[in-house]
Amino acid sequence: MTLTFVRSARRAQLVEAAIRSLADLGVEGASLSRIAEHAGVSRGVVNYHFPGGRRELFEAAVDEIYDLGRREVQPETESAPSPRRGLASFVRGSVAFYARHPIHLRALTAIYTSRTEDSLRRDERTEHATEMMSVADLLRRGQATGEMRDFDVTLMALTIRAVLDTAVGLTAAGADPDVLADELVNTLDAATRALP
């Protein structure tokens, strides 16, 4: 094994420990010592791999969660045969992701809702902006092909994001993800599709 591989594996282990700590304890309780304990290492190991402290580690956790979401949701969304089907795939894939990874979503929610000095804001993250631009592009394509009606694309993209944010909470509270996804797909399709 190369040193780079070992370092990369250790960083991934620490990020996973941070995600679990954040989900269990929130930002306030997820100290570097607690994260080290979760990972089964000393705090010095955490400091070595994340010299920027908790904020750097939280940023790496957010990166990992978004990367996981992209890997699970993006391929089917991008390969959909039409914008309407792409929107349906994005919504279904997002809800399924929330259901499969509740720990990751609790950690992300903890990071974004905390008001500590090392917390992060979703609207400051490039991943969030990229996702919003992708949704807006999908909606514009739907309008260009005539599948979707005329509406303010930015407002609709924000509406879709708000609906999916609500789905995170509903999924965490035990809602059936398939039923929820069906309802959201039908609702958002009705809100966006062009009338015959």
Rank of each mutant, 00 (worst) to 15 (best):
T2L: 06
F5S: 12
F5K: 13
V6C: 09
A9V: 09
R10Q: 06
Q13L: 07
E16Y: 11
E16N: 14
S21W: 07
L22Y: 03
D24V: 06
L25T: 06
E28K: 13
E28H: 05
G29H: 12
A30W: 01
S31W: 12
I35R: 00
S42L: 08
V45F: 05
V45C: 11
H49G: 12
F50W: 06
G53P: 07
G53M: 11
R55Q: 15
E56K: 04
L57K: 00
A60W: 01
G69M: 06
R71I: 08
E72C: 08
S79A: 15
S79K: 11
P81K: 12
S82F: 10
P83I: 11
R85L: 15
G86E: 00
A96M: 05
F97Q: 02
A99I: 08
R100N: 13
I103G: 01
I103M: 04
I103K: 00
L105I: 11
L105Y: 00
T109M: 15
A110F: 04
Y112M: 10
Y112N: 12
S114Q: 08
R115G: 15
D123W: 09
D123R: 06
E124H: 04
T126R: 08
T126L: 14
T126H: 14
A129G: 07
E131Y: 13
M132C: 05
M133T: 13
V135D: 01
A136H: 10
L138D: 02
G142A: 12
G142M: 07
A144D: 10
T145P: 10
R149D: 14
F151I: 11
V153I: 09
L158N: 04
T159Y: 13
V163E: 03
V163M: 09
V163Y: 01
V163P: 01
L164Y: 01
D165Q: 09
G169N: 09
A175N: 04
V179H: 04
L180N: 00
A181R: 01
E183H: 14
V185T: 02
V185L: 01
V185G: 00
N186S: 10
D189Y: 02
